[in-house]
Amino acid sequence: MAKGVWIVAEQRDGALRKISFELASTARKLADQLGEEVCAVLCGSGIEGIAGQLGKYGVDKVFVADNPALEPYTTDAHAMAVAKVVKENDPAILLLGASTQGKDLSGRLVGKFATGLATDCTDVKIADGKLLAIRPMYAGKCFGEIAISSFPQMATLRPNVFAAVENPKAGAVVKFDPALDAGQLKTKVLEIQKDTSGKVDLTEANIVVSGGRGMKGPEGYAILEELAAVLGATVGASRAAVDAGWRPQTDQVGQTGKIVSPNLYIACGISGAIQHLAGMSSSKFIVAINKDAEAPIFTKADYGVVDDLFKVVPEFAKECKKLLA
């Protein structure tokens, strides 16, 4: 019988990613309710040394595949490695991050295990001994409670939503042979172009400062960039601003852009079209700055400022600078 709560931990350049600790903590909670073990799978090259860190967040055992063909991440190699160790151990639950890597890998595993998966969950619990996953659908316009009738019951967790809580367990490292079949490694990463701006990705940012049509043009974003620099935030944009060519497409927040869940989302000159709200409603705190008091964004905002953003934002940046000094 399938047993245990497993996670697929993520690392890049030899460092565990934050989502790995969020996964570990969440798995620990579920496993404690079931009275079962938490195991992690970690794949890469030269990564055995970092595996133990997962123990601090509640992982009992870390299955490590250390092989040059597992670095950098490719779907083929990682799917083969993870599928092998998961099949051999038959866990009840398998969690991954709803990161670019987790989403790429999880679908492949669904195919290999012929099982079900709940994507981009914002909550997971145990009900009657089974996983119950809660996730936004229609980009958050409604939520679904998902049950899975096959094993492993799979879910990907939205980054930044689940707390990473220290809860030390053994974190015992168990090496395994990923048994990679070189003939099946079809995709090749030819080049990795790193973003050198130092900017945190929107989906991982703690604070997002976003601008919409009210920014009036690309030059309007200068004040948002300044505010973002003070707060250590990442700048986002509404679809209207992206479609107008004011901001790159990678900055778009919304149903057809990125889904973000920062601690603080500051919407400037964004009216709050439903497709935008869909992309940011799971933010912990929302601030709206807009001169139109009737703008729908105010129905979602924890704090609203009805005024000219070109006057408020620079003042707000000054105030924040003072407070943070």
């Binding site: 958050g140 939520f143 679904g144 899975i148 009738s149 709206a288 105010f298 609203g304 400022v305």
Partner: peptide
């Protein structure tokens, strides 16, 4: 046959009314 099933659809959690400053 479905492996994953939406057992219940629910409206998004309502956000408490915000403060206008």
């Amino acid at each position: 046959d479905r492996k994953a099933r939406v057992v219940r659809f629910v409206p998004p959690p309502a956000r408490a009314a915000g403060k206008i400053i």
